[in-house]
Amino acid sequence: MSWFSTFLTSSIGKKLVMSLTGLFLIVFLLVHLTGNLQLLIDDGGRQFNLYAKFMTSNPFIKITSYGLYAFILLHAVQGILLWLKNRAAKGGGYAVNNTKATNTVAGFAKNMGWLGIIILVFLLIHLYQFWLQMKLGTLPMVNYDGVEVKNLYVPVMDAFSNIGFVIFYVLSMVVIAFHLWHGFQSSFQTLGLNHKKYTPFIQFLGKAYSILIPLGFALIPILFFLRNS
């Protein structure tokens, strides 16, 4: 093995991959949320649809998006593999379960695998419902100032008027919040970025982020649903 693959396949290297992809996804969530918040503009979806068009046609964003797909895949596959490996390394648990933690919530930290799998399921549904429609599906077209744009706003409207889906979506955001609550500060720890002065700030930021971002996402279907009913 070359030194580089030895590095990346060591226990710390594997966690480094999880940490870096995780941080990238954390940043992506913020970008994604800024996009979604445009749904709340009361213009019949014009701003949102133009934004969707921009995101799917700008070459720079296109390249970045391939990176994103790869990172999501890497984060998910590696995460599941490590989770299985860790369970095997433990070789069975205790009759009494009583895990304590000092810097995080033990329940979240211990169950990052399960939380991740729920998020993955959500993501697959989410991708099928919106992303795949945008890429391959037959969305109605809408014309803004002479530009033909796919009307992604329509399936979003449909989905968000379904109470079952709204609940599923909101619950998924709660799961993401749990995942982030541990994952945010954990990714800094894995990178070795721990300092008496800055770590408390990172931990605070992580907690704030893991509440505010999923809350922002969850508010949109809730507001839509309330507005439409």
């Binding site: 226990s11 966690k15 490996k85 860790n86 390394a89 433990k90 895990t99 933690a101 995080t104 211990k110």
Partner: peptide, 16 residues
Amino acid sequence: DEEGFGLCSNVTACEA
């Protein structure tokens, strides 16, 4: 790694 220990998920149960 060779000894077969698991990876660190920063659970911090060790510190506790």
